[in-house]
């Protein structure tokens, strides 16, 4: 049963991710991104990481993609008329992909099939909310603070860049 669900969510996620890239319509791309995030959340849920799954849905699927859609609709983004890739770029891309594929096949062939190694059972204390919160406030405090600070800078940057200040008077 979990295997079946894993295959289902994995195929679904990859298909939606391809949809994001290949759709010509920006709105359809954003909706594919939404489905892709839901698929990833499903994979997290299969790993018993309920908190991560629902936070992903809440923050990314619930708010961030909604903002994407909002911006796309507000700017009425249409596809450009210019062809995205020239002939040279397509040829180079195909060459690179071919080389990569050969490398992977050769490497996996020489190493032999790895088989599916069962993971050790997860530490139950890491699954509960209190432990996660404690880790965020002790071991990972610095990364959390740094990321928060970066987001703050980005937000201030958006305000400064999007508003045109004529002089110091406008800032007050």
């Amino acid at each position: 049963m979990p295997d079946l669900l894993f295959n289902l969510f994995a195929v679904f996620t990859v298909a939606c991710a391809l949809g994001v890239v290949f759709n010509r319509n920006a709105i359809a791309s954003a909706l594919c991104l939404l489905l892709c995030l839901v698929g990833v959340a499903g994979l997290f849920a299969l790993l018993d990481a309920m908190l991560l799954a629902f936070v992903l849905v809440f923050v990314y699927a619930g708010a961030v993609v909604a903002l994407f859609l909002f911006i796309i609709m507000l700017l009425d983004a249409q596809g450009g008329t210019r062809r995205a890739f020239g002939k040279l770029a397509v040829a180079a891309g195909a060459l690179a992909a071919g080389l990569l594929a050969t490398g992977v096949i050769l490497l996996s062939g020489s190493l032999g099939p790895a088989g599916s190694v069962p993971l050790p059972p997860p530490d139950p204390s890491l699954l509960n909310l209190g432990e996660t919160a404690e880790l965020l406030f002790t071991l990972y405090l610095l990364p959390v603070e740094v990321v928060g600070f970066l987001l703050l800078i980005a937000m201030l940057g958006v305000i400064v860049l999007s508003k045109r200040f004529a002089g110091l008077e406008d800032i007050k």
């Binding site: 909706l31 939404l34 629902f54 936070v55 849905v57 809440f58 699927a61 619930g62 708010a63 909604a66 859609l69």
Partner: peptide
Amino acid sequence: AVSSLGVY
């Protein structure tokens, strides 16, 4: 989380 999807 789930009800925030209602906006779509």
